[in-house]
Design a binder for these strands. Sequence first.
DNA 1: TGCATTTTTGCATCCGGATGCAATTTGGAT
DNA 2: ATCCAAATTGCATCCGGATGCAAAAATGCA
Lengths: 332, 332
Amino acid sequence: MRGKRATSYDVAKLAGVSQSAVSRTFSPNKSASKKTRAKVLAAAQELGFVPDPIAKSLSLGRSRLAGLVVTQYAQQNYPVALKSAVDVMTETGDSILLQIVDATDDGDTAIARLLRRRVDVILCAAGVSEAAARTCAEASVPLVLINRRLNFAGVDQVGSNHAMVMRGVAQHLKDTGTRRTVFLDAGEGNWVAAERRRGYVAACAHVGLPEPDILVGDFDYEGGFKAVAQMGDAARNFDAFVAANDPMAIGAIDALTLELGLSIPADVQVIGHDDTAMARLRGYRLTSIRQDMRTILSKAIEMAYGRLEEPQREDADLLIDSTFVPRGSTRD
Amino acid sequence: MRGKRATSYDVAKLAGVSQSAVSRTFSPNKSASKKTRAKVLAAAQELGFVPDPIAKSLSLGRSRLAGLVVTQYAQQNYPVALKSAVDVMTETGDSILLQIVDATDDGDTAIARLLRRRVDVILCAAGVSEAAARTCAEASVPLVLINRRLNFAGVDQVGSNHAMVMRGVAQHLKDTGTRRTVFLDAGEGNWVAAERRRGYVAACAHVGLPEPDILVGDFDYEGGFKAVAQMGDAARNFDAFVAANDPMAIGAIDALTLELGLSIPADVQVIGHDDTAMARLRGYRLTSIRQDMRTILSKAIEMAYGRLEEPQREDADLLIDSTFVPRGSTRD
DNA sequence: TGCATTTTTGCATCCGGATGCAATTTGGAT
DNA sequence: ATCCAAATTGCATCCGGATGCAAAAATGCA
């Protein structure tokens, strides 16, 4: 095995058959007699032959690469997401090309890079312009949006069912005697936070809770802390804070307890989102919401490859249920 | 641009030159006259031609793919690491194939997969057997170990200088009147924790602190909490807890304060590792150590590609300084 | 056993760019 | 203008597998 690796020609020569026979032996559903197959496999074994994926890509016109675009936040805060995506893909012999976008949530550049790389499909958990979607369509590369929304023919979408889980949150708050609530949103351009806000606002209306005040933080701990701290005593007028993510919720808790001396959950309830490791700390015990990222990603992969087979299929738009995870920052 | 994408032949025809001319125009350092180049570029522009990376890979024998193996822990806890690696690679037109290994820290399977994929180089921040290293060598794929150690010719290594930073930690503890300390280690097979332990133990000897007791947790919050909680009142005999990572340190803090009623840092000092988001929470203000993952990864990439050019180069073993980040869980 | 099918097999060519070599053009110096 | 060296160009072939097609072999049926 020193030096160069064996090619199908080497195997063919050793097995005394043609290169085509070798190729066919390694492709499923191709005609090859038992005898030939055995000879080829023996020779391949001896030479340590593995079909070259690059040559395969060239002749099949498939790179067996899937592009995945995520935000920096997602990369860090969904523990199993990336791993399960990689695992799912690995099983079929495909791999993931990762692109990470920062707070701007602009996936267009990432998509352009992935297309240049000739990925077979793109899963995008970042913002996407119509122009980018069109580019994908022109290249016949299926594009699946994750927790984002875009009305463009041929683009499938999967995401969390925020409306549904937020209804449970609002109901829970109402049942525990809450009246006035604050939603801790993130700044402009944070699509995910906005979706959660919309879900919560709608849920309040639905269960008969007053419309929440909207407070804008930075989608991180300091942002949540500062936003609430700056409210000063005005914060005392609210019974609950629902945050777009856990770090902001924890920031809110620190502001409420350390700055205002309020007690949680007796005086005020706090709810986060994403069920991160922080939420489990005994110092906080933050009630949170867990997205089913595993399912979301595996569905996204399924949809992407499904469309590769059947480009004209009707557009899909899947909503995956999230789970409410009650802990000590809310009352029963 | 509907349908199939343009090839170098299409461009050649439109520009009225040979396909070789097109190829040469798109390869740096190849002879091509200004005139030809201009004609080709114009035609390419018109057809939206981009050289196919797959065909390129096949003829150049380079996939322009780098394998990166990380543990699940690393994937989540080094905020900028993955992103900066992806960015560094993207600049040169290369991409990263990610493999994530779980707590077993066994990178061999991941490496085998990457080799089958024909990556050009492999960066591995997980355990590697000699056999796997040999396989890489046979395939002429440079292997760079990150925060791991293996004595095998041709394998380069980069990692944090634990000995150095731990010396600072031990000195700081000594200067603040500490005598007996505990190192919160993780279980068998956690290479990173073990490296940090060795660094700390050596540092204690170096600065004249008593040899620390070793306590084994699970490398996570619950593990740290339980390990310290189970010590019971015995924990009161120690002046400081140095943990192999932040979650364990936070777990220790919760056990010390909530279970034993100790106060931090007055009664006992606690130090974590990795400077995660948790460490910055006002409820903990954990003193920690920050690895310079950005530098570590970019050096790893540099070394890997360097060796691709110069396979016989002397083995490198680089130590990157970590930073001590003092916060409220230690005294000045 | 003989003839018609169905399988299996090998040949040749394709996928899309890179490159050694020889032919041709260009440029410089005289 | 003339000759030589250097730069440019095109041709042909390679990278390693996949596959349509036609020839060859194996199988079925009478």
